[in-house]
Simulated scan of single mutants.
Amino acid sequence: MTARALVSRAPLVAFQIALGVALVAKGLVSSGVGTALVTLALFAVWIGGTLLNSWLAARPGVLRFKAFAIPLVFGLTLLAMWEIAVRGYGVSTVILPPPSAIAVRFSHSLPILWEDFVQTVIKGALSGFVIGCVAALVTAVVVDRFDFLRRGLLPVGNFVAALPIIGIAPILVMWFGFDWQSKAAVVVVMVFFPMLVNTVEGLHDTSAMQRDLMRTYAAGYWTTLFKLRLPAAMPFIFNGLKIASTLALIGAIVAEFFGSPVRGMGFRISTSVGLLALDLVWAEIVVAAIAGSAFYGAIALLEKAVTFWHPSQRGHGH
């Protein structure tokens, strides 16, 4: 770490140390030596993680994959503090299991977790995401072609998008059955209108000068659409895809609370809570977090490859 970086971060580190000392002293007075030592360990881990991330941030030439290392160090710091706090303060595993117990349950429940992942993410969320987004793209082109549809459909879309999922999920489960088809239907309803609104907005993002230029080349509607307007709308389309990727997983999981076969992440979470198997609940949450992050990250990587020309993507390279 350079001297300038050390000086700039000195007030933050000093504040953390002072706060840690105050809490340790409070623990000694109120709860004894054990609680004070646990508090001291927590602040030692936090300050160590802060200093390590400060060192990584101040040396751009040392670590090539710094963008991944800094969040990793931060996440490991939080996990270490979680483990120390739960075990040191004697928190009941029913209230909050430690990460080590969640990891053990995760490793012992891989067949169940995989079955739930396929049922919820692949069959329910992914199929609904694809159907909803493709339908929204096609509908956006039709709405763009006929202006009266835009004036009539988009207000209805905003109304439907505001409907709570806990209201529409039971209805769609009764319509489409208890298997993954009803969860896909919930996902379609959730992702369709955000994707539609973003795409329609993107199709109107071209300037009058650009459209006039296409007319000087005698380009018709479809040529202008595919050569100018759709490429210009790609940042909006990918914004809709990223929003839909998070909504899809949430919708599929929540819909399983209202009826599902004996598998699925939402089903497993609801039944495990009733059995007080909170370590399995947290294992399902870990799977959902990994799946959601990977899904979002894949769309972000595809966006970077497709919209490399956009100023926002060029700015990410610095």
Rank of each mutant, 00 (worst) to 15 (best):
F238M: 04
V138W: 08
E83A: 12
G75C: 11
V118C: 11
A85H: 08
V287S: 05
L113Y: 08
F267T: 10
A136Y: 06
A44N: 01
L12Q: 10
T199S: 12
F258P: 00
F146M: 11
V189D: 01
V200G: 07
V91M: 08
F178H: 02
V187K: 03
M81A: 13
P111T: 05
D212S: 13
L28Y: 12
M265G: 06
G157R: 03
K242S: 04
S127W: 11
A169D: 05
L249Y: 03
M190T: 14
F176S: 00
G274K: 09
T77K: 06
V86S: 08
D147A: 13
S107L: 15
V286K: 02
I122W: 11
L52D: 03
I47F: 02
Q119I: 03
L228N: 05
G48P: 07
F74H: 09
A69I: 10
T223Y: 08
F68A: 12
V21D: 06
A255Q: 02
A18T: 12
L275W: 07
F43I: 13
Q119Y: 15
V91W: 08
H204W: 05
W114R: 13
L42V: 14
A248D: 09
L241C: 05
Q210L: 13
K242H: 07
A291D: 00
A305F: 08
W282T: 02
W82K: 08
G220L: 04
S107I: 09
A3D: 10
G266E: 07
S272A: 15
H310V: 02
V188Y: 00
A10Q: 07
W222T: 13
G317A: 13
A232H: 08
L19M: 13
L113F: 08
A248Y: 06
A41C: 14
I165R: 06
V262F: 12
S100V: 14
P97C: 09
L6R: 14
M1D: 02
H204L: 08
